[in-house]
C-alpha cells in the first residue's frame, strides 16, 4: 500500500532503491569483466590469426621444398637403379670369369695328362722299336717313398 502511494509521486521505498542500486552495480561490474574478457579473446584471436598466417607460409614453403626434393629423389632413384644393374652385371661377370678360369684350369690339367700320355707312349714306342718289347719295364732301383 505504502509503496503504491509513493509510486504515485514518483518515489520508491528506500529499501527498493538500495536493492536496485546494488543490482545495477553488480551488472556494471559484470559488464566490465565481460568487456575485459572480450578484449583478451580478441587479442588471442589476433595472435592465432598471425600464427596461422605464419604456418600457412611455412606449409607453402614446405610444399615447394617437397616438390623440389621429389624431383631430386627421382633422379637419385634412377641413379640407384643404374648402379644396382651395374652391380648385378659385375657379379655375373665375376661368376663367368671364375667359371671360365675353372674351365681353363681343367683344360690345362687335361692337356697335362695328354702330354704325359704322349710322352709315355713315345717312350713305349721307342722301347718297342729298339728292343721289341711291349711290356712295361720295371724301373731301376730308385729312392722315393712317400713321407
Amino acid at each position: 500500500m505504502a509503496s503504491g502511494i509513493l509510486g504515485r509521486f514518483g518515489l520508491a521505498r528506500a529499501a527498493h532503491v538500495r536493492a536496485a542500486t546494488a543490482r545495477a552495480d553488480k551488472f556494471k561490474t559484470r559488464t566490465a569483466a565481460l568487456k575485459q574478457q572480450l578484449h583478451a579473446a580478441l587479442d588471442e584471436a589476433a595472435q592465432w590469426k598471425q600464427q596461422a598466417a605464419q604456418l600457412n607460409t611455412r606449409a607453402t614453403a614446405a610444399m615447394h621444398a617437397i616438390d623440389r626434393r621429389k624431383g631430386k629423389d627421382a633422379g637419385h632413384l634412377d641413379e640407384l637403379a643404374t648402379l644396382r644393374d651395374k652391380f648385378h652385371r659385375l657379379q655375373e661377370a665375376e661368376q663367368t670369369i671364375a667359371l671360365t678360369r675353372g674351365h681353363l684350369l681343367t683344360m690345362e690339367t687335361k692337356l697335362d695328362v695328354l702330354e704325359g700320355a704322349i710322352t709315355v707312349l713315345d717312350r713305349r714306342t721307342r722301347d718297342h722299336l729298339e728292343h721289341g718289347t711291349t711290356e712295361p719295364s720295371i724301373e731301376p732301383a730308385v729312392t722315393a717313398k712317400p713321407s
Binding site: 710322352t119 709315355v120 712295361p136 722315393a144 717313398k145
Partner: peptide, 18 residues
C-alpha cells in the same frame, strides 16, 4: 708288381705313385 708303376705313370720322372 713293379710293372704297374710303368704302365700307370704319366710322368716318367715320377718314381712312386704313392
Amino acid at each position: 708288381d713293379g710293372r704297374y708303376q710303368a704302365a700307370l705313370s704319366l710322368n716318367p720322372r715320377l718314381e712312386y705313385l704313392e
